[in-house]
Design a protein around this nucleic acid. Structure first.
Lengths: 195, 195, 195, 195
DNA sequence: TATGAATGAGTATTCATTCAT
DNA sequence: AATGAATGAATACTCATTCAT
């Protein structure tokens, strides 16, 4: 892949850092431009407006995110194993890019309803991965036949998301990746005692 | 009986409606004042600044929220039953006040880190309720002895929160309260097949 | 003189202190009221508005000022001696009330043209004293027959005023009263070498 | 030859007029911007804040002022003649720019202590000119050996300043420049009768 | 007289966006 | 494509003043 739009990437990368360091509302376009080493006006050759930068950051990063996770769950593994891999890699990617973690868990939510709707649109790719795993699990008998896929998806996503957010709010003090197996077990077996 | 601090309540109530209708950033102080039928300046007799209105709204409502839920789980019920009651009442309260639901799930998150930290502080009361239920469940053997309380709390809260958010994002089209038993079952048994 | 309007005096005194400590624009009416131990509204029973407090402070204090100086120059002294007494007492009164000095030299000037005109009106009493001295001096031959009274009055007042302002701006570090004889000599003999 | 920083000059000039016409506190930034034919925001590309406009106006004009007076007193003249030139030119410059006179004598004083300190800093250039003349006069024997330079400087500046202020307060009704020789004489010989 | 809760007019400043070069 | 100077809309907050008690 050729670097055909070097400025675009420059701006995206500068934006992630700027958002993470200052928050969305405190990340003035001029500040992003400065960090990207381009002129203020240049931003508007690549993005419609400031919101578009945020959404593009998410789109871009989430694209790589989903791509990576898709690879990871392609194999012949069981649904349970795929769930573990999903969680572990989700945790790993965000652990390795703390700025991205901050943007994903905190800054991205500081937006209005319309923007949130667009974000949800982008999230769909991720949620479909979860659905795939759930359906496989139900089909193979690993997961309960009575499982409401939509609710289960919300549990899986809600739990992962809350776990990451708590970790970010605690300033990423502990090892997130190490929690993956326990989170997976909890999602599969629930709180109940199982013999 | 005189109404105590009538203006304070007027403003809080107007703020919930205004935030829900326009979002936090589009809720100008003058708009809130107008809705509360007080002068702009009066707001500042009762609140330090605009952020303080938002935080006070949450504090006020969450206080009632936790109080209500505390009552509900006081009885002799099993942990499982208490969990159902918690979820059901959480869903019911937000179902009955759609503006509050919007503020809680969307507007409250449009804020900076410091404010988020304050919100988390207020949330603690709620999370302690979850912990109580989890601990009771573990002690009575209903819940697994190996359960990591912190992670379990994150699963419970994350799942409930995500379920409500999805419902709000879908414009509250379906009956949230009816989902409570299934959500409870899912949290207790997980996705796994159990016989 | 009976204390018939104790609140009036309370407010005047509180205002001098408040103005000196915070400056005119930073002396909110509520702050003055608090210092005077009266309610905000009470101020408006005694003063038309905030400006009226400032002007009244000046009027009140300048009245005592001129009264005192009038006494001092009543005697049989020469014009030169009266000039010295005027300067010395002017310096002494402000030296003994540093808050009044600050208000007179700095805060009183932070006002608009109309107010300044009123202040000049009040100042007239003082300037007439200067004129009296000048005229006596010219008549007795102490002062030059060719003296332009108006210009001389401006020199006398301008010099005294500038001397006090410099002293205030230097945080009243040195003894102002001690300068009086030299200032008087300078005003009478000028810069020129005189044998 | 391109006009350098045309907007800066535009704003400075508009500010002098606006301050003179409306007073500092009644000169809204938007009013200055309108008079300067620039957008409100443009002001902030050239000035830190509203106070900075005032101080810059003074700095700019006082710079030219001192420069002009420096030229004027460079020659081989006696101290007495230099003093006359100083006064005459001081009077002339302000006579020719009545707006500047109003700003200098009235508006500039409507400010707080910090700002006043900055103004004094700028004034130092002027006061040094006065000192030069005084010292030359003392050295050549024109002025009294016993002269306290600091007090004399205060007399010279105080007298000039008071004369101009009185003239401004009287709406510049009379010819200020014509007073210069008499003011000079008065400063040199004082009020005393000299033969 | 005295109070002090309530009022609401008034404004400096920021910053996303544009556009002439 | 790139620049960055210029734009101007938009708004939280203060505080002098009022008036019902």
């Amino acid at each position: 892949m050729k670097t055909q739009k070097p400025k675009y990437k420059q701006i995206i990368d500068a934006a992630v850092v700027t958002f993470a360091e200052n928050g969305y509302h405190q990340s003035q376009v001029s500040k992003i431009a400065k960090n990207a080493k381009v002129a203020d006006g240049t931003i508007y050759l690549y993005f419609k407006n400031k919101e578009d930068i945020l959404i593009s950051v998410f789109q871009e990063k989430m694209g790589q995110f989903v791509e990576k996770l898709e690879e990871v769950i392609q194999g012949e593994n069981s649904a349970s194993e795929k769930l573990r891999l999903l969680i572990e890699n989700h945790f790993r990617i965000l652990s390795e890019d703390s700025n991205l973690a901050i943007v994903t868990q905190l800054e991205l939510r500081q937006t209005n309803k319309e923007l949130r709707a667009q974000i949800n649109e982008i999230l769909k790719g991720y949620l479909q991965l979860v659905d795939q795993i759930l359906i496989q699990g139900i089909e193979t008998g690993e997961f309960s036949k009575e499982l409401d896929t939509r609710l289960a998806r919300q549990m899986v996503f809600g739990t992962i998301d809350e776990t990451v957010t708590t970790w970010v709010m605690n300033e990423q003090k502990y090892d997130l990746v190490r929690l993956a197996p326990k989170v997976k077990d909890m999602l599969i077996h629930g709180c109940g005692s199982h013999h």
